[in-house]
Amino acid sequence: MTRVVVDVMPKPEILDPQGQAIAQALPTLGCAGVRSVRQGKRFELEIDGVLTAAQRTDIERIAASLLTNPVIEDFVLRIEDDDVVDTGRPR
């Protein structure tokens, strides 16, 4: 099995009110020295077997259109082989 992870973050020039709210709350929780917080989201997609090139293209397309709002967000896609699942294949 293959796990594809898509990390979505607000573009650097875009205001992130959620991250800002967290950053402002930190001092009141006794956590000093944090200059800035940016909040994003993470998607994990699990694929049976080895990821094919066609599947990868599909996922990139989905990541760019459905998982991400391309107007205000960027994404990074990476592939993790799952070492917990019993694929039966040698690792």
């Binding site: 607000p10 020039e13 875009i14 205001l15 800002q20 107007v71 205000i72």
Partner: peptide, 15 residues
Amino acid sequence: TAAQRPSVQVGDPFT
């Protein structure tokens, strides 16, 4: 329009 996308602003009503 895709090329003009960075022009978008994000608001924060609480601010």
